[in-house]
Design a protein around this nucleic acid. Structure first.
Length: 364
DNA sequence: GGCGATCCCCTCAACGAACT
DNA sequence: AGTTCGTTGAGGGGATCGCC
């Protein structure tokens, strides 16, 4: 792909992202306070020096932008996060949430990354992240239990530490190359369909040292073979190193998982004990409550009985009082009637007496 | 039910390759 | 040289899910 000279790119000094008002759509989108893509890294020779660095057991393309070492995000995603999250979009969302602003690649950096095979040939944009920022992102992808919300999908656990899958990435395994935008790396480019672990002879030949023309053909052949063997030995060493690192990382993961399991078991035991104590206490409380209820009911019964007794007593005494009052009233009435009769008799007596005396006086 | 995180689906932009 | 098509990452909208 990259053997032909690249056509001039639009506004190389300003990078890949168009200015916000570059298109009618851009104008339309200006209204939203959307996620603002930061300006790309300045297109300077210093910024465009690419190195392959060891990161988490893999070779990752890195630039030094403004004194900060930054790695290729799509490549790092492909190597480390692909199995943990649904896609790059999730990663961008996470970056937003984590308040991490990646560096946007400039045109030259994208070309270099494409040339190295760190990103796919058709890729035209790319972001860069410092190792520390990627550590935070990785931690967020692997440890979401402490966070609310929907847990990540995690279709496949990342059993393998990042391996270089793509044949193009084989180039990255062969050591730390220094590339600048002006250094062609096409000699390293090889056709597709390599096997996973072993680069084909063709590519090894490509890596063999170039020889002066005055050496005999046998010597040339021997030197070539020597070079091939050296490259093969280097590759074997590299793979061995990779395997041992994978083993070490797996061991560490095993230890971590074991510790986590033990801690969880301990916590489970404590929870179970605590639950048993609470159940016992609950049972006791229920028993006490039942007892109190019984006492309460008994007391209520007693009270009702007492009230009935009081009611009964008061009605009887009222009746007695009534009767005595009636009797008194009757006695009083009789007495009054008797008195009235006596008074009438007296009046009659006095009347008769008066008539008798007047009769006597007139007869004299 | 509200909230926040995640995921799926979609469009857009930029580029290279192929074609006319 | 210009056009078309395919590829890829960027990014938004909306659905879904789990927690409180």
């Amino acid at each position: 792909m990259a053997t032909q000279p690249s056509p001039p790119l639009p506004s190389p000094g300003h990078g890949l992202s168009p200015p916000p008002v570059a298109s009618p759509l851009g104008l339309f989108k200006l209204d939203k306070p959307a996620y603002s893509t930061p300006p790309p890294a300045e297109n300077t020779p210093a910024n465009n020096v690419c190195r392959m660095i060891d990161y988490r057991g893999a070779k990752v393309a890195a630039f030094t932008v403004d004194g900060r070492e930054v790695i290729c995000l799509p490549q790092a995603f492909d190597l480390f996060l692909k199995h943990l999250v649904g896609g790059l979009h999730t990663v961008y969302t996470k970056l937003k949430r984590l308040d991490i602003t990646p560096v946007v690649c400039n045109v030259e950096q994208v070309r270099i990354l494409r040339g190295l095979g760190a990103i796919q040939p058709g890729v035209n944009r790319c972001k860069l992240l410092s190792k520390e920022e990627f550590d935070i992102l990785y931690e967020d992808c692997t440890n979401s239990s402490s966070r609310p919300g929907r847990p990540p999908k995690r279709a496949q656990p990342p059993l393998m530490p990042p391996l270089i899958h793509d044949h193009k990435k084989m180039h990255l395994e062969n050591g730390d190359f220094d590339f600048t935008g002006h250094t062609p790396i096409d000699s390293l480019e090889s056709p597709d369909s390599h096997s996973e672990g072993n680069p084909p002879l063709q590519s090894l030949v490509g890596m063999a040292p170039f020889l002066p023309e005055n050496i005999s053909s046998t010597e040339t052949l021997l030197t070539n073979i020597q070079g091939l063997l050296k490259v093969a030995a280097d590759n074997a060493r590299q793979q061995e190193k990779q395997v041992s690192m994978e083993k070490a990382e797996l061991k560490m993961e095993l230890l971590r998982e074991r510790e986590l399991r033990e801690a969880l078991e301990k916590q489970l035991g404590e929870e179970q004990r605590s639950r048993a104590v609470l159940q016992k206490r609950l049972k006791k409380e229920k028993k006490a409550k039942r007892k109190m209820l019984e006492q309460l009911e008994q007391e209520q019964r007693r009270r009702i009985q007492a009230e009935d007794g009081v009611k009964q007593t008061s009605s009887d005494s009222l009746r007695v009082l009534n009767e005595s009052l009636s009797q008194e009233l009757e006695v009083e009435r009789n007495a009054r009637t008797d008195a009235e009769r006596k008074l009438q008799d007296a009046q009659l007596y006095f009347k008769n007496l008066s008539s008798w005396s007047s009769l006597v006086s007139s007869s004299e």
